[in-house]
């Protein structure tokens, strides 16, 4: 197996709400991403996916747990200690309309990381990164402002800027959720190509079907925890956790003849400031038993290839 790049262990991120209340946005998440691996972190809004990614980038401080990049513990690294890490670990944001400075030309946006890290040969590197991100010919785009580009082109500029430093890993925070369906496949295909060339990719998404298509492994998050993880095909074909089962059941089938039995969950996601006792999914779980409200199950092996789920019925 190839080298493990990012390792997150027992990560907890807390926010204070007022004086006494503590919100655990992320509550004991562990995951790893290896070189050439495409991992999808799937979950609904507010479950802590983005916080996990931002904590890995040290944009949000971790309350406890460890984050390692290769063999270096970066949980408490200072900004200057983070600098070499930031060259290798790049993030792509969700909204390509917001994440590019409207006053910068494309070439300045892509060159900015090079400037920050004091690298030479900027022109060449900018062109190389842009071609790699599918903005060909680069000359057509260099002098443009973001508002002159389409959403898909902007997201490619964003990816080119991330690639300019020749990173070894990309964190993609919902890279296609703001884009038209017609250009999504292009961007996802680009990420897939980058993975094939050896980058580790952690993609955050709420769309299980794109995750199923591209990811090697899927981690399903619910209310700050990973409730199921495993090889993508295993998780999709043989979901073990009732939450994952519900998610898989609502993914549209390409065959209209095939009947769907969507399983719609009752109720709303609980407030992360007021997590239910026991298994945090039990108030909405269709198969909950009495024990579920008192016992908080850890991730347990379920099936093959490191497929694990956090449910007492497994």
């Amino acid at each position: 197996m190839s080298e493990t790049l990012l390792t997150i262990e027992d990560l907890v991120v807390q926010y204070r709400q007022g004086r006494k209340k503590v919100v655990k946005a992320v509550d004991g998440v562990s995951l790893t991403v290896a070189a050439g691996e495409f991992v999808a972190l799937v979950g609904e809004s507010g479950c802590g996916k983005t916080t996990t990614a931002q904590t890995a980038m040290r944009m949000v401080p971790a309350t406890s747990g460890t984050i390692r990049y290769r063999d270096r513990d970066i949980t408490n690294a200072t900004q200057s200690e983070m600098r070499p890490i930031r060259r290798e670990l790049q993030i792509i944001f969700q909204d390509p309309y917001e994440s590019l400075d409207p006053r910068f030309r494309v070439k300045d946006i892509v060159a900015e990381p090079l400037e920050i890290h004091g690298l030479d040969n900027r022109d060449e590197r900018v062109r190389a990164a842009m071609e790699r991100a599918g903005l060909t010919p680069a000359d057509l785009y260099l002098e443009r402002y973001p508002h002159e580009l389409s959403g898909g082109q902007r997201q490619r500029v964003s990816i080119a800027a991330a690639l300019a430093l020749e990173p070894t890993m990309l964190l993609a925070d919902e890279p296609v959720s703001m884009l038209d369906v017609s250009v999504r496949a292009g961007i996802l295909g680009l990420l897939n190509d980058l993975r094939t060339s050896g980058l580790g990719i952690l993609m955050i998404t709420h769309d299980l079907s794109t995750a199923a298509h591209f990811a090697d492994r899927i981690c399903v998050m619910y209310l700050g925890r990973i409730v199921e993880e495993g090889p993508a095909h295993e998780v999709i074909r043989n979901p073990q956790h009732p939450y994952t089962k519900a998610l898989v059941s609502v993914v549209p089938q390409p065959d209209p003849e095939q009947s769907m039995q969507p399983e719609i969950l009752q109720g709303e996601t609980p407030n992360p400031a007021d997590v239910p006792t026991g298994c945090r999914f039990h108030p909405r779980c269709p198969v909950a038993t009495a024990a579920c409200s008192s016992e908080d199950p850890p991730l347990r092996p379920a099936g093959s290839d490191g497929h694990r789920a956090a449910c007492i019925l497994v």
Binding site: M59, M82, R86, Q90, I91, S99, I116, H117
Partner: peptide, 8 residues
């Protein structure tokens, strides 16, 4: 935020 993530 992107500039911060880059270490600016």
């Amino acid at each position: 935020k992107r500039a911060q993530a880059l270490g600016a």
